[in-house]
Amino acid sequence: MRLNRMLLSTTLVVVALVIQVSVLARLHLPGAVPDLVLLTVLALAMVYGHVGGALIGFGAGLLADLAPPSDHAAGRYALVLCVIGYLAGLVKPENGQLKSATGPMAVVVAAAVGSTLLYAGVGALVGDTAARHVGLGGLLFSAALYDLLLAPFVVPGLMALARRAENNPLGESGTSAKAADVSSGWLASGTGLRIGSQRGMRVKAARARVARAGRIKGVKRL
């Protein structure tokens, strides 16, 4: 990843994690907690693509695993967000801009449900049965509802910020290519003028030598 992507992604993930731990987690809402870190990963993944989404998801999940008051094994949420970030990055369009809000909202709902299921599945493998006691159905519904309500205030703004901070290598290469074409054109035209002028001078010099030789021969004949 490029330096500007890393700096922006790190800043946004840290801010989202701080807000989630200090504000959203203390609302004591029924069911799941609104996942601002997940929404941040989704927004960046839909701009940077699947590779960037996977890297950002892994880093964000690892920070969430280590941040207090975490009560699960480190690496569990990192795996979840890495997979979710990779899959979300696959819906990135060619120009990096989505035409409507339907696609991102569908991605948010699918990511909320998928991350909850994957988190519960990984927990079941390591012996964590908390999802069974809380109720998996309630967790899925509340996670999708909270993230969907929060997404319009988070995802579009973060995507716009990521696109604005993103460098435009195509534009730069196009500009450099145009500059190269212009410079090569100037060089070609200048070289053609020099070659033409040199040829003209050589022809004139040859004609002058022929004329002088003719005059000298005429004098000798006389």
Rank of each mutant, 00 (worst) to 15 (best):
R5I: 07
R5W: 09
L7K: 03
S9Y: 06
V13G: 00
V14D: 02
L17H: 00
V18Y: 09
V18Q: 02
L29H: 03
P30T: 07
A32Y: 04
V33H: 03
V33N: 08
D35T: 00
L36S: 08
L36H: 08
L38I: 01
L38K: 00
L39I: 04
V41L: 00
L42K: 06
A43F: 02
V47E: 07
Y48Q: 06
H50Y: 07
G52S: 10
G52H: 00
G52M: 09
G53E: 01
G53Y: 05
A54E: 11
L55I: 08
F58G: 03
G59M: 14
L63V: 03
A64F: 03
D65Q: 05
A67R: 01
A67D: 10
P69G: 15
D71F: 06
A73Y: 10
A78G: 14
V80H: 00
I84Y: 02
G89L: 08
N95C: 05
Q97L: 13
L98N: 07
S100I: 00
A101Y: 10
T102R: 15
T102M: 14
P104C: 07
P104R: 05
A106Q: 07
V107C: 10
V108I: 04
S115K: 08
S115F: 00
L117G: 02
Y119M: 10
A120P: 04
V122G: 02
G123P: 07
V126M: 13
G127Y: 08
G127F: 04
D128Q: 07
G135P: 02
G135C: 07
L136K: 06
L136R: 08
G137S: 01
G137R: 03
S142F: 07
A143P: 06
D147F: 08
P152H: 03
V155Q: 00
P156F: 10
P156A: 09
G157R: 04
L158M: 14
A160G: 00
L161S: 06
A162F: 03
R163Y: 01
R164L: 13
A165H: 07
E166C: 05
P169Q: 02
L170T: 06
L170D: 12
G174L: 14
T175M: 12
A177H: 12
K178C: 11
K178R: 10
W186N: 08
S189H: 11
G190M: 11
G190E: 15
L193T: 11
R194A: 15
I195R: 10
M201D: 12
A205R: 14
A208Y: 06
R209H: 09
R212W: 09
R212D: 11
G214Y: 14
V219Y: 10
V219F: 12
R221Y: 06
